[in-house]
Design a protein around this nucleic acid. Structure first.
Lengths: 326, 326
DNA sequence: CTGAAAGCGCTTACAG
DNA sequence: CTGAAAGCGCTTACAG
């Protein structure tokens, strides 16, 4: 079914049908109403693809996350999808995976769909291959990078000050008398590195030993590395985790070792995710203010869409949420 | 940049460029390589919209969830997106909201994007308005309904046997000696109703009183209704929750009331979500086998896409996962 | 107020 | 092995 079919049924030309659909002025009321009725009765909907071809617009936004099942990414994708749906855009949300090759490939997919804007969610996207793909394949559309940055004129950034967040957490623990605060990092992303820097800076400033551990970022990984940490450094009296998820599973392992939280060991997570408030004991955490971050992305994208020269970098400073584990 | 630009640079016609792009046979090797090089050097990518217009395909799948931030929905969306990306499809994942009007509107959005197939995730979509929208606006493309069904020839279903799952949980508790098992339901979706039926059937079969409570499905709602339940029915010795999330927050409220879990009160959640295994105490739960459900959707959709007459209804029976709360 | 025609960026029969 | 032409479903200047 095309507008020509509608035109035939209504006894008018396709031009007129098009004008009705697009609410253009200067159509006789009777004609308009007849055409509208026939459109409705025929269950006709205009092809956005054909429309986009002539208008040179796709009315699509591309959103890249590495894995949509990760709550942390979903918040941003949700906000943007909802916000732009109201403005008539559809969102293509793609799981771009973890390796740079795959991510760059997804940039090309978005390019071939001619999205009018793109959003990258997560610092994992900050690598040379993705940057090159953006430069080569989407040099003229606004791109918002949540928690990462590129030196490209069309890429704006909304960053969480991860360094400061972790620093603040460790210093807080120090002020509260903890003298051996360990840090458990997840995978080595740019964001992860910033968190580590914050930890190291705090260690320096508080004159305490560096107890830095790495794991894969999963609940199991967090639990296992916690066990290792406790075995190797029984003097540990606080642990800060790069993600709430690890902090929750880590806490469990600490409790299993017959240590008390927070009496023997204080625990802090990162992100203030649903896991943190639901945990038992309720988890103290570094709130990266994901919602504000996400809504800022949304607002900035809307501005960038209307102003081609728009480029901004915004940084949001995390705050500490103190609950039962500190 | 169009294939005409590429053609001009390569000194060939657009037809030839098109053939190279589509890997059609019968192109001189030298020509092919020259065109390929120019495409690469120009960072050209073919417009999927234009291509779709002539081929009458969009290579897009529409996925409707009510809220992408809900882990429960994301699993299915993830599997389908990943599976079909490999087959050359892009996924439009839309948050269709909670009210039938909005959901039906989203069906129309997908229709105007000419998606080649659609997936509805969640029994909330099972209502007259959505069914009508599907019948009217996407009568000829395969639709897979996760956890719901429509009597339409193009709609296949993958259902969780929620009734049986809840029944099994309550009966298990009865066998283990619990005589006053309450049930906390979430919002009244078709799936929620089936769960309630299972609870009521179990009450009948086990000859126990019906202690049925409702809440909004959130963590706070679950905690509050638990408190009410304990006040009104102090004899309660088990609680089954329609979602893990509520079970976790509910458990916390039970512990706060100085009752022991599971000694005084046994607790079971539903879904075997990440929350359940991370909870303290670790939550026993009705495993609705979300992953199997999701991958079945994916497999069925692929079959439906290649066989227009395909229509199936599959039911997956939940199993019980027993951990520390029972 | 309405219609005929051109054109958006592709693909594909048809011709050579 | 390659090209000219028509057509996918729309929109929009132009003409009337």
């Amino acid at each position: 079914m095309t507008i020509y079919d509608i035109a035939a049924k209504a006894g008018v030309s396709a031009s007129t049908v098009s004008r009705v659909i697009n609410a253009r002025p200067g159509i006789k009321k009777a004609t308009r109403e007849r055409v509208e009725r026939i459109i409705r009765e025929s269950n006709f909907s205009v092809s956005e693809a054909a429309r986009g071809l002539v208008n040179q617009t796709s009315r699509m936004i591309g959103i890249l996350v590495s894995d949509i099942r990760n709550q942390h990414h979903t918040e941003g994708a949700y906000m943007i999808e909802q916000h732009f749906l109201r403005l008539g855009y559809c969102s293509m949300i793609l799981n771009a995976g973890e390796d740079p090759e795959s991510m760059a490939g997804h940039i090309m997919i978005l390019a071939s769909r001619r999205v009018e804007a793109a959003v990258l969610i997560g610092s994992v996207f900050q690598n040379a291959l993705v940057e090159k793909a953006v430069r080569d394949y989407m040099p003229h559309i606004p791109v918002i990078f949540q928690n990462g940055e590129f030196s490209l004129p069309n890429v704006s950034s909304v960053l969480s000050d991860d360094e400061e967040g972790t620093f603040a957490a460790v210093r807080y623990l120090h002020i509260r008398g903890r003298r051996s605060a360990a840090y458990v990092s997840g995978p080595e992303t740019p964001s992860g590195s910033r968190k580590i820097s914050g930890y190291l800076r705090a260690c320096g400033e508080c004159r305490q030993d560096e107890l830095l551990y790495f794991c894969d970022g999963t609940a199991e990984g967090g639990a296992d590395v916690t066990e290792k940490l406790l075995a190797e450094h029984p003097e540990t009296d606080a642990v800060v985790y790069a993600f709430d998820l690890m902090a929750v599973s880590g806490s469990r392992r600490i409790l299993d070792s017959r240590r008390r939280i927070p009496d023997d060991i204080a625990v802090m997570g990162t992100d203030n995710s649903p896991f943190s408030s639901l945990a038992n004991p309720r988890l103290s955490t570094i709130d990266t203010r994901l919602q504000e971050l996400s809504s800022l992305c949304s607002v900035m994208l809307e501005r960038a869409l209307s102003d081609p020269s728009f480029r901004e970098k915004r940084i949001i400073t995390p705050s500490l949420v103190l609950r039962e584990t500190t």
